[in-house]
Computed example of a mutant assay.
Amino acid sequence: MADSKVQPKMGNTGFIIFLAFLSAFVPLSTDLYLPALPEMTTFFAVPEIVMNLTLILFFVFYSIATLFWGPLSDRYGRRPILLVGLTLYMLASILCEIAANAYEIIIFRIFQAIGGGVATTVATAVIKDVFVGRKQETTLAIVQSMVVISPAVVPVIGSLLLTFISWRGIFFAQALLGLSVIYGAVIFKETHASQRGTISVMKSFGRLGALLTNPGFTALLVNFSLISIVSLSYISSSSYIFQNTFHLSSRVFSLFFSFNAIGMLLGPLVYIPLSKYIDRFTIIYASFGITIIAGILVLVFGQMTPVAFALTQFPATLASSAVRPPGTYLVLKQEENDNGSASALYSAGGTIFGSIGMVIVSVAEATPVAAIAWINIVMGAICALLLLVSMTFLRKKIVV
């Protein structure tokens, strides 16, 4: 079905852009204020780990929230759930702006995470509602390519904003983002019929457990969630590495961060043409291998200069991003029903494991570059091994 028929008020391009904005809520909610983290740490006179909690707890509660929004969107429909969650996100962003101390920001960021958790889950579910087969995988790749433009552009915008406004203005910008996406949700045409009269709320949440009893779904869910440790550990530590370890300004940091974010953009874009000629599993295994090699390069050369660190980390960023489209497709392919619940578990899995990576680099704040290197090496090897084991022992239970 043509996208213009699915969303008459948005049209084809508007629909894809709307899905991209929803899918980009995590980077838009974190990368915009990354350049301000060291400034906020100084402003509130708290240890780095305290201010890092605004990131870590955001990802933790974001992942928890997706587990609620997904089943609820299956029961009540995508549109009403979007409107509720996005409104909460916008209000929490305003509260972050007027917070009096670091601990209030941590609390309001938790509410921001809960509201924002609706976005990625519903976006992925809508794609699965509307598209099938190769078109579904291609759309996932296109949307995710647009999503990762934000890590390349948003930190630069954030650092530029900091030259004119304080860190409080960053949260006002996030509130405006929430308002703009709320408008998209208002004109969004529902893609999933409500099951309010046919299934109870508790039974909707029970589908989460039912999905996890599918060995193929669970194996691939864990596998492709683990790789998010690579990207989120880098994102959470990058501002401290470039500004504190290499003593760069917030503006120069944003340029280095944007360079590495180009790898996030290129990953899905490279995957689309390659997948026409190369089996998706070959691409996935190659990506895991590249992540390992990048980790070794970071360990050997990355601690010398900021340029060396950015260049050696770049392959890992590109490779972990290239895994996202086929990984998402394969996980969701294991379950043809309960799109919202399946999307929720996938979003939550990636965020939960990514938060573990953020904790690791926070604990290893004395040697953050080495921590990033070992995360690349270990996670690349674990993911490759787990996928090989899963495909060997669950071949008949995994749909490809």
Rank of each mutant, 00 (worst) to 15 (best):
L95S: 09
T41A: 11
L32H: 00
G70K: 03
E97P: 00
I81A: 06
I110K: 02
D31K: 01
S73R: 04
P71R: 05
L88M: 14
L55W: 07
E104P: 06
E48M: 08
L82M: 14
P35D: 07
F68H: 01
Y103E: 15
S23N: 13
A92E: 09
T121W: 04
V46E: 14
V26E: 15
P80M: 02
D31A: 05
M40N: 11
L88S: 05
F108L: 13
F68V: 06
E39P: 00
P38E: 11
Y89Q: 02
S23C: 14
V60K: 02
D74Y: 01
L86K: 00
P35T: 01
L32G: 07
C96W: 00
A123M: 13
M51K: 05
A102Y: 04
R78P: 13
E39L: 15
P27K: 08
G77M: 10
F58R: 08
F43D: 11
L55P: 10
V46R: 12
D31G: 03
P80A: 01
L86T: 10
I106H: 08
S63G: 15
A92P: 11
S63C: 03
L82Y: 02
T54D: 00
A92L: 10
C96M: 10
M90A: 15
T120H: 03
F58C: 10
L67N: 04
E104Y: 11
